[in-house]
């Protein structure tokens, strides 16, 4: 049962990563590419963390996985904002 849950959730996560990567390669400008990366990949990582959590031996490991996901969310969100702001300034010639 837990193995099945792991397969389903990590599979979903991989799908989201795939979609994010396709978007990153195919989208026309930096803003939509950032959109693909932050939305799809963060969700994908969440699903993978959820899937792996079913294999965890203790609640401590589950909490660590959740913390890792939250930190990546925070970093990715901040960095994409900063990149977007920089790109906006470049486009408008400062």
């Amino acid at each position: 049962m837990t193995d099945l849950a792991t397969h389903v959730f990590t599979g979903l996560g991989v799908l989201f990563f795939l979609a994010g990567s396709v978007g990153f390669l195919r989208f026309p400008d930096i803003f939509s590419r950032l959109h693909a990366l932050t939305k799809a990949d963060n969700l994908g990582l969440g699903f993978i963390a959820l899937g792996v959590a079913f294999q965890a031996g203790s609640w401590r490991q589950v909490a660590l996985l959740a913390l890792i996901w939250a930190l990546v969310l925070l970093a990715a969100g901040t960095v994409s904002q900063l990149v977007a702001r920089h790109a906006l300034r470049e486009r408008d010639g400062r």
């Binding site: 925070l74 901040t78 900063l82």
Partner: peptide
């Protein structure tokens, strides 16, 4: 801005 709040959230962790 985002950098200011990032700088507040990250250091405790």
């Amino acid at each position: 801005g985002v950098m200011a709040s990032f700088g507040r959230i990250l250091p405790p962790v």
